[in-house]
Design a protein around this nucleic acid. Sequence first.
DNA 1: GTCTATATGTTGATAGAC
DNA 2: GTCTATCAACATATAGAC
Lengths: 207, 207
Amino acid sequence: MTTVETNTRRGRPGYDRDSMLDVIVEAFNDHGYDATSLGIISRRLGLSKSAVYHHFTSKEEMLELALARAVDSLRAVFEAPEAVAGPVAERVRFVVRAAVLVACEQLPYVTLLLRLRGNTDVERQAMEERRAFDARLADLFELASVEGVLRNDLQPRVVSRLAFGLVNSVVEWYQPSGALQPEALADTVVALVTGGLSAPGRVGRAG
Amino acid sequence: MTTVETNTRRGRPGYDRDSMLDVIVEAFNDHGYDATSLGIISRRLGLSKSAVYHHFTSKEEMLELALARAVDSLRAVFEAPEAVAGPVAERVRFVVRAAVLVACEQLPYVTLLLRLRGNTDVERQAMEERRAFDARLADLFELASVEGVLRNDLQPRVVSRLAFGLVNSVVEWYQPSGALQPEALADTVVALVTGGLSAPGRVGRAG
DNA sequence: GTCTATATGTTGATAGAC
DNA sequence: GTCTATCAACATATAGAC
């Protein structure tokens, strides 16, 4: 969104925090948060370590800001009107589709969130918020199962975990610079979740 | 497989490398390889750092041994007779099913492999072998598409990535100590991949 | 096979000049 | 807003006693 070298504010060239964060999050994803030293970060930013500390009070604050961005984007998905009302089948499709779009459009930030292991308080808090989203999707699948929209030969809890895993796996390979558009990918994921992969009439539905 | 405190060899109590590796890989998964210090490892093993170095020549060697175990398990899946011959639909089902079983049964080792970021030679080599497996599954999906077994409204390359992502996502939540058996999970994954989630006749196949 | 002690470098963070 | 210089704590790895 913001340019790397300059921004719209008047005075100095320098970075603003948002554009610095883009670089920092990339480093976090390459090495893992713990293993990303301030040396690595300052080298990527072309600044000294002290200059970096002028913009952030600690390494943990960088993580906190980055995770907040990912969590906020995902929260918007689950709080959208299309996610909380309407036919269950359409709510499932909306959430899956929107989650894929968020994963594509906020790729590095969502990637960071998904790779947390919970070794610090900041990580644990973000993971807890993420787990709340998992739970809401699980509730949606539970509801779908009760209403008979979901096939009833599979456990809804297992299915919802797999569905979320399917969506989240996008961050492991999707490249925003490539030809595949987020919308097309989202459509494919929704199609896979609802319809499966078999050609019609060729391979029977497994029981 | 091996006990933690003792093994079948004659002399001293101490650890053997395999049982030490179980503990070490758990630490690698908790903190990430880079961020796992020998202090953490030695504390978990109840040994001094020097004692650990009696069993392994370096931290990198620990990683190398652990990754070899994961890669070997996955290789066995793709080289099994059921994966290389027979009807394509059944080969797809076999590979997906077997990959889930390996993920469950070698959970910590496969988890370690899947979380690599490629910052060292050892990591890059293991990732390359893993990518070869990805490519073989992609070929299988390509073949399934050509033969008309796979629905032809989705790109086989995208679908194979998602299918692998679905399988791999298992390591993010599966607990071997829980009630869910690996075979049951594998059945569910295969059912999801082939049949999708919709109840028969309720939600149409997306196009 | 395990230990203490140590070598050598890197870490996150601070102080203070410009 | 950036820098150099510095800190204590920690990293991986080794030496040598028991």
